[in-house]
Simulated assay, not measured.
Amino acid sequence: MLRILVVDDHAVVRSGLMLLLDGKHGMHVVGEAADGDEAVQKSIELKPDVVLMDLSMPHGKSGLTATAELKKALPDTSVLILTMHDDEEYLFRAIHAGASGYILKSAPHDELLKAIVHIGSGNAYLYPSATKRLISDYLDKIKNGEHADTYDSLSIREKDVLAKVAQGYSNKEIAEQLFISVKTVESHKSNLMEKLDLKTRPDLVKFAMKKGLLNFE
C-alpha cells in the first residue's frame, strides 16, 4: 500500500486529488494539508511514502521550503511537486530542495498516477518537456564552453549503472540486467556519485538527463 499525503491550499483541489488517488494502483490517501507548515507537521506525524506537494501556497511555508524541511526529517519520503508553473527555474529549485518529481497540474490523470507510483518505488519523474529542456540547456552550455565534462571520468560499468538508474530501474533490476550483485550496483552508484559530486538520487537523474542518457519518444 502506497501511503499518500495531499498538500494544496485549495480545499476543492485537495478533495478532487484525494478522490482521484485513493484506492488506485494500491494507493491510500492518509491525510491532507493546506500549507507548507501543515505539510511538514502531517508528514512527520503520518510518515507517508509520497507527498503530493503544491508549489505555490500563499500562507505559511512554500512548497519548496516545506519539501526541503520534510526531506531532512524524513529522507525516505518522496515528494512529487504538482504545479501550474512550466518554468525551468522552479524545476531546478524543486530538484535542489530534494523533490523526486515535478509534474504540471495540466497533466492527464493517468500521467499523475503513473508519476506517483514511479517515485513511490524510489525512482525520479519529470514531465517529458522538462527532460527535453534540461538536455537542451545542457547542450547549449556545452556549446558555449560552460561545462567541464566529468562524465568521462566514469568507468564503462559506472556509466551503465548511471543510465539504468536514470531510466528508473531499482538496484535489484540493474543487478539482474548487468549480471552483477546488488552490492556491486550500490558500490558503482556510490563511486559515480562521488566522482560527479552528486548528493542525491534526483541529482544523479538530472545529470543523466543532461547527458542525454534517456530515450525520448
Rank of each mutant, 00 (worst) to 15 (best):
residue 213 L to N: 03
residue 124 A to W: 00
residue 45 E to I: 00
residue 97 A to N: 00
residue 68 A to G: 07
residue 10 H to R: 12
residue 166 A to W: 06
residue 194 E to G: 00
residue 179 F to S: 15
residue 135 I to L: 13
residue 67 T to S: 07
residue 82 L to H: 14
residue 25 H to C: 07
residue 184 T to Q: 15
residue 150 T to D: 12
residue 46 L to C: 08
residue 153 S to D: 11
residue 195 K to Q: 10
residue 117 V to Q: 11
residue 86 D to Q: 12
residue 97 A to G: 06
residue 191 N to H: 13
residue 113 L to T: 04
residue 152 D to F: 05
residue 216 F to G: 00
residue 147 H to T: 05
residue 180 I to F: 01
residue 48 P to T: 07
residue 210 K to F: 01
residue 163 A to M: 13
residue 53 M to Y: 09
residue 119 I to E: 04
residue 191 N to D: 11
residue 95 I to W: 09
residue 100 S to Q: 11
residue 200 T to E: 03
residue 163 A to Y: 02
residue 138 Y to T: 01
residue 171 N to W: 04
residue 203 D to W: 02
residue 203 D to S: 09
residue 204 L to V: 05
residue 135 I to F: 11
residue 70 L to E: 07
residue 62 S to C: 05
residue 110 D to Y: 07
residue 39 A to L: 09
residue 171 N to K: 12
residue 91 L to H: 05
residue 76 D to V: 03
residue 13 V to W: 02
residue 167 Q to K: 15
residue 144 N to Y: 09
residue 22 D to A: 05
residue 10 H to F: 11
residue 45 E to N: 04
residue 133 R to Y: 00
residue 66 A to S: 14
residue 186 E to T: 10
residue 196 L to W: 08
residue 11 A to I: 09
residue 38 E to A: 12
residue 161 V to I: 13
residue 204 L to G: 04
residue 79 V to E: 02
residue 75 P to M: 06
residue 175 A to T: 10
residue 157 R to K: 12
residue 130 A to G: 06
residue 141 K to T: 08
residue 184 T to S: 12
residue 173 E to Y: 03
residue 210 K to D: 00
residue 103 I to S: 04
residue 87 D to E: 13
residue 216 F to W: 11
residue 20 L to F: 09
residue 70 L to V: 12
residue 75 P to T: 10
residue 203 D to M: 01
residue 216 F to T: 13
residue 174 I to E: 06
residue 167 Q to L: 11
residue 151 Y to P: 05
residue 116 I to K: 02
residue 26 G to H: 09
residue 191 N to Q: 12
residue 83 T to H: 06
residue 157 R to N: 02
residue 145 G to T: 09
residue 69 E to C: 07
residue 25 H to N: 14
residue 209 M to F: 01
residue 201 R to E: 11
residue 162 L to K: 07
residue 187 S to R: 14
residue 69 E to W: 04
residue 215 N to I: 13
residue 21 L to H: 06
residue 17 L to W: 08
residue 86 D to Y: 01
residue 121 S to Q: 13
residue 122 G to Q: 05
residue 20 L to R: 07
residue 201 R to K: 14
residue 110 D to K: 14
residue 185 V to S: 07
residue 126 L to G: 00
residue 170 S to K: 13
residue 16 G to N: 10
residue 128 P to Q: 04
residue 130 A to W: 00
residue 157 R to W: 00
residue 134 L to H: 01
residue 184 T to V: 06
residue 119 I to C: 08
residue 133 R to W: 04
residue 50 V to F: 02
residue 73 A to K: 11
residue 169 Y to W: 12
residue 157 R to Q: 07
residue 94 A to H: 07
residue 163 A to S: 14
residue 47 K to W: 03
residue 174 I to C: 06
residue 217 E to I: 06
residue 173 E to T: 15
residue 188 H to Q: 08
residue 88 E to T: 09
residue 23 G to C: 06
